[in-house]
Write a protein that binds this DNA or RNA. Structure first.
Ligand SMILES: [Mn+2]
Ligand SMILES: [Mn+2]
Ligand SMILES: [Zn+2]
Ligand SMILES: [Zn+2]
Lengths: 161, 161
DNA sequence: TTGAAATTGAATTTCAATTTCATTTTAAGG
DNA sequence: CCTTAAAATGAAATTGAAATTCAATTTCAA
């Protein structure tokens, strides 16, 4: 999905920009949606629904879990959020600000998630696909290991994948 | 986990080899486990539990679904099976015969799953990890697109994500 | 052969994801 | 500013795969 607005993490998307974007899909802008979007875009990382809901509830306890759930699905459809499922099986969401394709390095010790982008990797993927007659549309790539602090500890608190 | 036996797809693992392998973990070899292992190793592809259970039930309807479920988890722990969760969210298992690390190309049209191995990709992953101070233990990498027959069809039967 | 420990399998539980539905809200038109 | 049809909300219910329970059965070391 091609975004019409040049929104970025940290730059709150204007409520009326959202209204325009969402109305193109025949959907309606609501207080709840705008509030959830605002909170979501103004936070970083890879959060699960419970975490996002907790943030929302802190600001407005009237908003239901179901609405947060549905709104995150909606934002994913609109290209404003991205859903991730790493090897631990938890469903997480991250902001999908324009031009932010990246893959992930995940620490098996502390759960830290690092993002990276590597053009060589991307082109190699396409070469591999072409070799097998495939036309790639997207990929998933995660590297699991230990970050440098964790690699030196003995006692590891296991988390994620 | 380092395998003691040189089993391969198609070469049925001897029941007594399995007995030795499993007993090293303090576990017991049972009729059910041997039967499930045999059926599992003598089939190919990426099957979900229902599919594996169906095969097992065809041979021995007395074996319960729960036992198949538990045995596949066990085989995974022993390094004889590998669990996969592609983007469609289904849990699948494939035989993890010795020395068969590979990644996957998945057709969004027909659901075909192709396996590939690329040394360049593996080493590039390690370079990327090192660049970020990580020590990688495993990775997940899937390429999603259209196989050549599907790329030329108009009507696509969507499967897998 | 014996018996402690492990396994089996039907039934139950868990738990996140999804759906239902009565009520409320939105927004386009008048 | 009304009206109203369509969409959204949110509490509650449902779903379904994964995991657990437990009484009965089986395994295997001694
Ligand atoms: Mn990310
Ligand atoms: Mn495979
Ligand atoms: Zn770490
Ligand atoms: Zn195909």
């Amino acid at each position: 999905m091609k975004l019409k607005f040049n929104f970025k993490k940290g730059n709150a998307m204007e409520s009326n920009q959202f209204k325009t974007l969402i109305s193109e899909e025949g959907l309606k802008s609501t207080r709840q949606r705008v509030e959830i979007l605002d909170i979501f875009l103004n936070s970083t990382g890879h959060q699960n629904l419970a975490e996002i809901y907790a943030r929302v509830a802190k600001t407005n306890p009237k908003i239901g879990y179901t609405t947060v759930y549905r709104t995150l699905k909606l934002l994913t459809r609109l290209g404003l959020a991205a859903q991730r499922k790493f090897a631990d099986g938890e469903t997480r969401y991250e902001s999908a600000a324009e031009g932010t394709h990246h893959d992930h390095l995940i620490c098996l010790g502390c759960g830290k998630i690092l993002e990276f982008e590597d053009d060589g990797l991307e082109s190699l993927q396409h070469r591999i696909a072409r070799r097998h007659g495939f036309k790639i549309f997207h990929h998933r790539m995660e590297l699991y290991g230990y970050c440098s602090p964790c690699a030196h500890k003995k006692t590891r608190i296991r988390r994620k994948g």
